[in-house]
Design a protein around this nucleic acid. Sequence first.
DNA 1: CAGAATCCCTCTTGATACTG
DNA 2: CAGTATCAAGAGGGATTCTG
Lengths: 121, 121
Amino acid sequence: MESLAADVFSRACTSREALEHVTGKWSLLALSALQEAPHRFGELRRRVDGVSEKMLSQSLQTLERDGWVHREVRSTIPPHVEYRLTPAGAELAPKLLALIGFVEDRLPQVHAARDRHDAAH
Amino acid sequence: MESLAADVFSRACTSREALEHVTGKWSLLALSALQEAPHRFGELRRRVDGVSEKMLSQSLQTLERDGWVHREVRSTIPPHVEYRLTPAGAELAPKLLALIGFVEDRLPQVHAARDRHDAAH
DNA sequence: CAGAATCCCTCTTGATACTG
DNA sequence: CAGTATCAAGAGGGATTCTG
């Protein structure tokens, strides 16, 4: 029997999949944007610069399915759809923001490291 | 010259690339493993269950280039190569661990959300 | 042991166009 | 407005072989 606790290091552990869903390129940015405020689809698309409609839609569906994001539809004409973080998502987002903030702050060092590394070879 | 503040939401911002490097499927796990202790290549390969030599090698090279991981070679026979976190990496890793731990803890809720979502359609 | 190099295939990605 | 459908291109990833 293996350990009872979830273990990302194990190939079979589903936490790996769940983790990939939230750390995905576009998911990460969508969650961060939603941390600021609820957004409509088009707003999100503009906020997350460079994302295609397809990938945004796909990412949002996955995030909704995993319970991080709530999707609210108002059946008006034209349609109005709003995305917001669920309570779980609201707990998750700050951890992502911490990560993003840290990497942004360290960006100069990252570039310096790359220059050093590239120069050495 | 680009914007003064790093902004992941901007398509052009290089922080996005740096972020993808550390949140990549295998990079994330490699950094987590190295947080526990320095590892040799083969140890890392066994610890990160499911990774191929190719992808592990590739991930480690990227992490080394960005300055999160240090690679130390001892020119013995057989060769001995040890990977460890740099000081920057040691600051980064806990943030990743926090994320992983959170998602692992929430795994039951994630599955429950999926079941609810799938049942509704 | 620690990788580099190669081949090969699948899955993701991203324009573009179309729909309710 | 908020997506879905389609298709071409490229990256991701596995298996195998080779080298210092």
